[in-house]
Design a protein around this nucleic acid. Structure first.
Lengths: 98, 98
DNA sequence: ATAAAGTAGTTTACTTTATAAACTTATTTA
DNA sequence: TAAATAAGTTTATAAAGTAAACTACTTTAT
């Protein structure tokens, strides 16, 4: 009846991150922080979780002298996001005969 | 950019309950338990939370000799559900200019 | 030159939330 | 009358979320 939700994506911040990366392909730590309004600490933790699941890749470099953390969504991440959206839909369209 | 999710509805089981009650108008504890596959304990706790928020109403009666807990969604619950769905949509349709 | 403020994060400690196991109360069946 | 079943609730524990404190370095002001 209901398709299972992805626990990793059933978090407002992590869903925001994934949603951003679906749209932007590539985004810096600061950009994501600004767009989501998350605290740096929380963002750091959630990015690591998504990275550990291979939903995103994180690369560290420098922009001038400043550290720059760049995030991208992976093919697995895109797949997981789409599956999660499908699952969400199963909660939204409910009819009695299903 | 992203509309805020309702913390109460951002839980798989509570969303399932609300989704069921949107479709069925009225459902017993056992029915919800069967449909969601939740344990009784977890279901009891989550129903109480939804009830405390006035998203559902719970009425206790007897069917024959057996206790019967019947749940209904309230107008506030319907409103919250619809708002939450709208918020979810904001995470699903992302375009660069928003 | 150096102190103060800002940038870009990470780690840690704490709080909240979710969940299952254990319990309660009563009923049916063997 | 003992054992199993039904319908829940309470409570203890595990997992998750979050902010505060910290690290490390850079830029700006004095």
């Amino acid at each position: 009846m209901f398709k299972p939700l992805d626990p990793l994506l059933n978090s407002e911040l992590r869903l925001s991150i994934m949603s951003l990366l679906i749209g932007f392909e590539e985004a810096s730590f600061s950009f994501i922080k600004d767009k989501t309004g998350a605290t740096a600490g929380n963002l750091s933790v959630q990015l690591q979780k998504l990275s550990e699941a291979n939903y995103i890749s994180i690369s560290k470099s420098f922009k001038g002298n400043m550290p720059l953390t760049t995030c991208r969504i992976t093919p697995l991440g895109i797949q997981a996001f789409e599956k999660h959206v499908e699952a969400l839909m199963s909660f939204i369209n409910v009819s009695k005969d299903k």
